[in-house]
Amino acid sequence: DKPLMPYMRYSRKVWDQVKASNPDLKLWEIGKIIGGMWRDLTDEEKQEYLNEYEAEKIEYNESMKAY
C-alpha cells in the first residue's frame, strides 16, 4: 500500500478519540472537527507526521524498484 499522507495519519490517530467525545456526530462532522484540529497544529507537531510519511515513502519506492 502507498504511504498515508500526513493529514490522513493524523486523522487515523485522533478519529476514535473525537468520535468517542462526539458520539452523535455524523462522519463528515467528525472529519470537519479533525480538519480544524489539524489546522491548529504547529508546524513542529505536523512535522512528526511528515517525517513518518517521508520515511514510509522511501521504503515504498524502494520496494517498488525491487518489484
Rank of each mutant, 00 (worst) to 15 (best):
M5L: 13
M37V: 00
S63K: 13
E44D: 12
Q47L: 07
Q17W: 10
S63L: 08
I34G: 01
K65A: 14
L41W: 00
K2V: 03
Y60K: 12
M5K: 14
W38Q: 03
M37A: 02
E59T: 12
Y10M: 03
E29L: 00
K57P: 07
K13W: 00
V14S: 00
W38R: 03
K2C: 04
K13G: 01
S11M: 08
S63P: 10
R9H: 10
D24V: 15
M37N: 02
G31H: 15
Y67P: 15
A55P: 10
E59R: 13
D40C: 08
I30F: 02
I58R: 14
K26F: 00
N22K: 05
K32C: 05
A66Y: 07
E44A: 09
Y10R: 01
L50G: 10
G31T: 14
R12A: 11
M8I: 09
Y7I: 07
G31V: 11
T42W: 02
K46M: 03
Y60E: 13
D1T: 06
D16N: 08
E44T: 11
K32T: 08
T42D: 10
A55F: 07
K2I: 02
M37I: 00
P3S: 06
E29H: 01
A20R: 13
N61T: 09
A20Q: 06
M8F: 13
E56M: 01
K13Y: 04
K57M: 15
V18S: 00
E45V: 06
Q17K: 08
Y60A: 14
K26P: 14
W38T: 03
K19R: 12
D1R: 07
L27N: 15
G36L: 06
K13R: 04
E29T: 00
I33D: 02
W15Q: 06
L27H: 15
L25Q: 04
M5S: 15
I33M: 07
N61S: 12
L25I: 03
E54D: 10
E54W: 02
Q17V: 07
P3C: 04
R9K: 13
E44Q: 05
I30D: 00
Y53H: 10
E56C: 02
D24C: 14
S21F: 03
L27F: 08
Q47K: 07
K65S: 13
E56S: 05
K65G: 10
M37R: 04
E44R: 10
M64F: 07
V14I: 11
Y53D: 13
M8Y: 09
I58S: 12
W28V: 08
D1Y: 05
I30C: 03
K57C: 14
E29N: 02
E45H: 04
K2P: 02
K65V: 07
D24A: 13
R12N: 10
L25P: 00
L50I: 14
L25C: 10
I33Q: 05
V14W: 02
V18C: 01
S21M: 13
D24F: 15
E48G: 09
Q47I: 06
L25W: 00
K65D: 09
N61V: 12
E44W: 01
E48D: 09
N22W: 08
E45C: 05
N22I: 08
G35R: 14
N51R: 11
M8D: 14
N22M: 11
R39A: 15
G31Q: 15
S63N: 13
Y49N: 06
W38M: 03
D40G: 10
T42I: 03
K57Y: 07
L27V: 13
M64I: 08
D40I: 09
E44L: 07
M5I: 12
D43T: 09
I30G: 01
E59F: 06
M8T: 12
D16Q: 10
S63F: 06
E44M: 13
L25T: 04
E54H: 08
K46S: 03
N61A: 14
S63D: 09
Y7V: 13
L50R: 13
K57S: 09
I34A: 01
E48S: 11
R12E: 13
Y53W: 08
K26S: 13
N61C: 09
K19W: 04
D40K: 10
L41A: 05
K2D: 04
E44G: 10
D24K: 13
I33C: 03
R9V: 04
K57G: 07
A66F: 09
S63E: 14
N22E: 01
D40L: 05
E29W: 00
A66N: 14
D43A: 14
Y10T: 01
E48A: 10
E48K: 10
T42A: 12
N61M: 10
S63V: 07
N61R: 12
W28S: 14
Q17S: 13
D40T: 10
L25Y: 05
W15F: 12
K46Y: 04
G31I: 12
M64C: 13
A55E: 13
S21E: 13
S11Y: 13
Y10K: 01
K32H: 07
E54M: 06
K46N: 02
M8H: 11
Y7M: 13
D1P: 00
N22G: 02
P6A: 09
Y10D: 04
E54A: 08
R39G: 07
K46W: 01
A66H: 11
E48I: 08
L50Q: 10
L25V: 06
L27I: 11
L41C: 04
K57W: 09
P3F: 05
D40E: 11
E59P: 05
M8C: 12
L27W: 12
D1V: 04
E48R: 08
E59I: 06
K46I: 01
D40P: 00
S11D: 00
K2A: 03
M5A: 15
N61L: 09
Y60N: 14
E45N: 06
K13A: 11
S11T: 12
T42M: 04
T42H: 07
N61I: 14
K13L: 04
R12P: 01
D24P: 03
M5G: 14
Y49F: 11
G36K: 15
R9L: 03
T42N: 11
W28R: 12
S63Y: 08
L27G: 15
E62T: 08
G36P: 03
K65Q: 10
M5Q: 11
M5Y: 12
G35F: 11
K13D: 08
Y53V: 08
S63C: 08
D24Q: 09
A66G: 14
A20P: 00
M8Q: 15
R39S: 09
P6W: 01
E62R: 12
I58Q: 10
L27Y: 13
S21I: 04
I58E: 13
R12F: 03
W38F: 04
K26Q: 14
L50V: 15
K26C: 07
G35A: 13
G31K: 15
E44N: 11
K65C: 09
D40R: 12
L27S: 15
A55R: 12
M37G: 02
K19I: 10
W28T: 15
I34S: 02
V18Y: 00
T42P: 14
G36A: 12
D1N: 13
K26I: 00
E59W: 03
M64G: 12
Y67L: 14
A20G: 11
M8N: 10
E56Y: 01
M64E: 15
D24R: 07
Y53M: 07
I58Y: 04
Y10C: 01
P6D: 08
E29I: 00
E48T: 13
I34K: 04
G36M: 12
M64Q: 12
Y10P: 00
Q17M: 09
Y67M: 12
N61D: 11
E45D: 10
W28L: 15
V18E: 03
M64P: 12
L41G: 02
L41P: 00
E56R: 03
W15S: 04
Y10I: 02
S21L: 14
D1S: 06
Y7D: 04
S11C: 08
Y49C: 02
I33A: 03
K13S: 13
E29M: 00
D1C: 04
L4K: 11
W38C: 01
P23T: 03
K65H: 08
A66R: 09
P6T: 03
D43K: 13
Y53Q: 08
N51A: 12
D40N: 14
N61F: 05
G35C: 10
R9W: 11
K32F: 03
I33L: 09
W15H: 07
M64N: 10
E29D: 05
E45M: 08
M64W: 08
P3Y: 06
M8V: 09
S21W: 05
Y53N: 10
M8S: 11
Y60S: 13
M5W: 04
E44K: 12
K19E: 06
Y53F: 05
S11K: 15
I34T: 01
K32Y: 02
M37C: 03
W38L: 00
V18L: 02
E54K: 07
S11H: 12
E62Y: 03
G36N: 12
D16I: 02
P23A: 02
Y60P: 11
A66I: 09
P6S: 06
K32A: 11
N51E: 11
P6E: 05
Y60M: 12
E45W: 00
M8K: 14
A20F: 03
A55Y: 07
A66Q: 10
Y53S: 10
P23L: 01
E54G: 05
D43F: 08
E29C: 01
K26D: 14
Q47P: 01
K2H: 06
